[in-house]
């Protein structure tokens, strides 16, 4: 089953490679991984999407928690949550295609953020399946480049995955 895990980790050189190294050393899957500093510059937020049986995901959570750089870990999978991913896609747009592609982008609430006489670059945000759907309707055109950010997520409501204040 797919799991989305939110991790606060020390914003230190090497912290990311400890997480990545753990996954490769123990043969766990990573579907996506995003990381960036938080409002507290000593902390980074990592969002990790993985999959496996309940036993394996349980081990993944425990092994992540064992890393000294991991300050807090929350598995968002069972929570009511919001997930977002951003897509930047560059697609060939010439002649009569241009209007059609613009209409498709509008339908998906995408924005054209760069234009040349031969191509559009479109920005689209949503959950993974929405991005997949948009890519698939563009499949019949000539896609020049696809860039996806990886998933980020947050729990709905008042609960927050933050470091305990000392």
């Amino acid at each position: 089953m797919r799991h989305i895990i939110s991790i606060l980790l020390e914003n230190e050189a090497g912290a990311l490679s400890r997480v990545a190294g753990l996954f490769s050393a123990r043969g766990y899957n990573i579907a996506s991984l995003t990381v960036a500093p938080t409002e507290d510059p000593t902390l980074s937020r990592m969002t990790l999407v993985t999959s496996g049986s309940e036993e394996i995901v349980d081990q993944i959570r425990k092994q992540l928690n064992k890393l000294v750089d991991v300050v807090k870990l929350v598995d968002l999978t069972d929570d009511d949550r919001i997930e977002r991913e951003m897509l930047l896609i560059k697609v060939c747009a010439e002649g009569g295609e241009r209007d059609e592609i613009k209409r498709l982008a509008d339908i998906f609430r995408g924005r054209i953020i760069d234009v040349t006489d031969r191509a559009y670059t479109i920005e689209l945000t949503g959950d993974g399946s929405k991005l997949d759907a948009f890519i698939s309707v563009l499949k019949s055109r000539r896609i020049l480049e696809v860039v996806r950010s990886g998933v980020i997520g947050i729990a709905r409501g008042n609960g927050a995955c933050v470091a305990e204040t000392p």
């Binding site: 036993e55 349980d58 081990q59 425990k62 092994q63 928690n65 064992k66």
Partner: peptide, 11 residues
């Protein structure tokens, strides 16, 4: 003492 050692190989 290590939670990751529990349920790792044997339920």
């Amino acid at each position: 003492v290590d939670p990751a050692s529990i349920q790792k190989n044997v339920p």
